[in-house]
Design a protein around this nucleic acid. Structure first.
Lengths: 329, 329
DNA sequence: CTGAAAGCGCTTACAG
DNA sequence: CTGAAAGCGCTTACAG
C-alpha cells in the first residue's frame, strides 16, 4: 500500500511537506505543491484515516445506535442524520440493537473504543445501567426519542400528541375509546402516550374499561391480536374508537376489524401515530400524527455537530408534530 | 484517557503483557491475568480500536454504500447485512449516495481510506468510471443488485421475475399490458425488467403501444404521473393491466386509477415488484414479487466474511424470488 | 512466563 | 518555505 512516506520519497521531500499539501495548511511552495499533487494522483494514493485519527483524536465518524433499521421511523431518522453529517464529511457507524437492551450499553462502549466523535442513541427504554454508562461517556451524546436525565435529548411530544388525538375523537362524538399501547418499559411510547390517553378521557369523565386496554410489540401482527382481544373481551360494551400508539399496530387492528366485518370508521374509528407511508395508502386512509422523524434526525445531527465545536449545556428539545386527519375517523 | 500504558503501570507489568490478556493470546500467569483484568474493570479502560487497526491492518468495519436508506428495500438489505456481520463483531459504516452516481465512486475511495475490511455496494447504475474504481480496490468487494463485471455479485432475477409476471397476467386473459419502468441507466431495474416484459409479450405476439410505456423515478408520485400519462395518451386503446417495476410506483398508479374511477382489477389490473409491507395492506392488496431483500443482504455479508478469510474467485449468485398473487389482478 | 524494541501511517510543535 | 523528531495507542516478532 502506498503511504505518505512513499509519496515523500517520490517527490524528494519530507513527509511533513506532503502532509501539509494534503491538509492544505502551512506554507508550501507552489512548485513543490504541484509536484506532490501530481504524484498523489498518479499513484492513486489514499491517506489512512485510521492513522490520522490516532494522531488527531478525531475520526470523522458519528456512532448511531438504533433499535431496528428496518422500520420506517428509524430509517427516516438515520436518513436525516446522514444528510446533515455527510455535508460536513462525517460518516455514520451504524449499530442495531435488535431491541436488545443489553446491546445499547455494549454499543455505547464499542463506539467509544472505535473513537467516534459523537453518539446518537435512539433508546427504547431507560434503566440505571444505561444512564450510568452514558454519564461516563466523554463524547458529545444525543438521545433521540427518550428523555434521558443529564443527556441532551430531542423528544417527540408524546403526551400532547395523545391528548390531541383523544380530543379529536371526542369532538367527533366518541365516548368509548379503546387503547393499544406497548410495554411501559418504554417511557415515551409506552408510558407518555398512554398517560395522554388516560388523562384526556378522565377530563371528559369518560370511563375506560379494562378490556379496552391492550398492548402489542410494535409489529403489525401484534396490533391485529390486540384488537382481537379487545373485541372478544368487550362483550356488549364495544368501543367506538381505538387509539393505537403506532401506525403499524393500527394497520394490524384495522385488518382484524375488516375481517370481522366492522366498518371503519362507521362502526369503529382507528387512529395511529407515526405518519408512515402506509398510513396514507391503506383504505380507509389512517388518521395519524406526523412526528417529522427525518427532521428530528437532522436536528440531532446538528446539535451533535455544534457540541463537537464547543461544549454545551445539556438541553431538552421538544419537536413539533402535526395531526393528520384522514378517513379512518 | 486511559491507555494500555496506564494499565501496565498500575499493574506493574509491561504493556506487552496487558495486550496479551486483553487479546487472550500468549502465556500469562493466572495471577498476573487476574490483576490486570481487575484493573481494567476498575478503570473502565476501553482499548483504542483505531490504534489496534493501524497496527493489525484490520478494522472490523464493513463499508456499505446504498442509494437511499429510507426505502424499504435498502433498509431490509442493511438489516440483513448487519445481522450477519454483528455476530462476528463487525460494524457497518454506512454511506448513502442519495442517488448521486458520483458519490458511489467517492465513497468507495473514502471507505478504503477508512480502512474498512470489505465493501458492499448497492449500485443503481454501471459506468466505466465506477468499474475501473472498483478494479483498483484491493479489499473484498460485493455488488448487490447489479451485475458488475469482474466483481462478485448477488443478483435478483429481474428478467425472469418480469417474464413470470407477464405470463401470469396473460394467463388471466390480459393482452393489452402497459409498463411503468425506470431509467435505463439502471441495468437491473431499468433494462432487465423491461426486457422481460417485452420478450414475454412478443412471445405471445401481443403488441405493445408506445403510449403504454412510461418511466418514473421510484417515487410513489412518479407512479401516479406515469399512470396518468398512460391513460391520457391511450385514447381508446386502454390497457387492461399494467406492470410496474416497483411496488411504490405501483401504489401511485393504483392511486391514480382509483381517483379516476377505474376498478382494480376489473377495469385495470396492477402488479408491482418488491413485496413491500405496504403492498400487503393496500386495497386491493397488490400482486408483487418477493425478492427476499433481507436474505440477499445476509448472503452478501456471508460472502464478504468468507472472502475476508480467504481470497476467492469472483462469482455471480442469482437469488430466488417468489411471485405473490393478491387481489389487484 | 515476561519485557524491550520496532513499527503501523499519520500530524505537529520546534528549529532553521 | 522545509525537515527531523516525537508521539498517538496499539501488536508482535524476538530474546531471555
Amino acid at each position: 500500500m502506498t503511504t505518505i512516506n512513499d509519496i515523500a520519497k517520490m517527490a524528494n521531500v519530507s513527509r511533513t511537506t506532503v502532509s501539509r499539501v494534503l491538509n492544505n495548511n502551512g506554507y508550501v511552495s507552489e512548485e513543490v505543491r504541484k509536484r506532490i499533487i501530481q504524484i498523489v494522483e498518479e499513484t492513486g494514493y489514499i491517506p489512512s484515516l485510521s492513522a490520522k485519527s490516532l494522531r488527531t483524536k478525531k475520526s470523522g465518524v458519528i456512532g448511531v445506535i438504533i433499535p431496528r433499521i428496518d422500520t420506517e421511523t428509524a430509517s427516516r431518522v438515520v436518513s436525516g442524520i446522514n444528510e446533515v453529517v455527510a455535508k460536513e464529511n462525517f460518516q455514520i457507524l451504524l449499530t442495531d440493537t435488535e431491541l436488545d437492551k443489553q446491546k445499547e450499553i455494549e454499543y455505547i462502549r464499542l463506539l467509544q473504543s472505535r473513537h467516534v466523535d459523537g453518539i446518537i442513541l435512539l433508546a427504547t427504554n431507560i434503566n440505571d445501567h444505561l444512564i450510568s454508562t452514558i454519564q461516563d461517556v466523554e463524547l458529545p451524546f444525543i438521545s433521540l426519542g427518550q428523555d434521558l436525565p443529564g443527556v441532551t435529548s430531542i423528544l417527540y411530544d408524546d403526551y400532547h400528541a395523545a391528548v390531541d388525538m383523544i380530543n379529536m375523537l371526542v369532538s367527533k362524538g366518541h365516548e368509548r375509546i379503546a387503547f393499544i399501547g406497548v410495554s411501559e418499559e418504554d417511557p415515551s411510547v409506552g408510558v407518555l402516550r398512554k398517560k395522554g390517553y388516560l388523562d384526556a378521557l378522565a377530563k371528559y369523565g369518560y370511563a375506560v374499561k379494562d378490556s379496552w386496554l391492550e398492548t402489542g410489540d410494535f409489529s403489525i401482527e401484534s396490533g391485529y391480536e390486540a384488537m382481537k382481544k379487545i373485541i372478544k373481551n368487550s362483550d356488549k360494551e364495544l368501543p367506538t374508537a381505538v387509539f393505537v400508539v403506532t401506525d403499524r399496530m393500527a394497520i394490524g387492528a384495522m385488518e382484524y376489524l375488516r375481517e370481522q366485518g366492522f366498518r371503519i370508521p362507521e362502526d369503529v374509528a382507528v387512529v395511529g401515530i407515526g405518519a408512515s407511508t402506509m398510513s396514507q395508502y391503506v383504505t380507509p386512509s389512517l388518521t395519524t400524527v406526523d412526528y417529522f422523524n427525518k427532521e428530528a434526525g437532522q436536528k440531532a445531527a446538528q446539535l451533535l455537530l455544534e457540541q463537537l465545536k464547543q461544549k454545551k449545556e445539556k438541553e431538552k428539545f421538544v419537536q413539533t408534530y402535526r395531526l393528520i386527519k384522514r378517513d379512518s375517523v
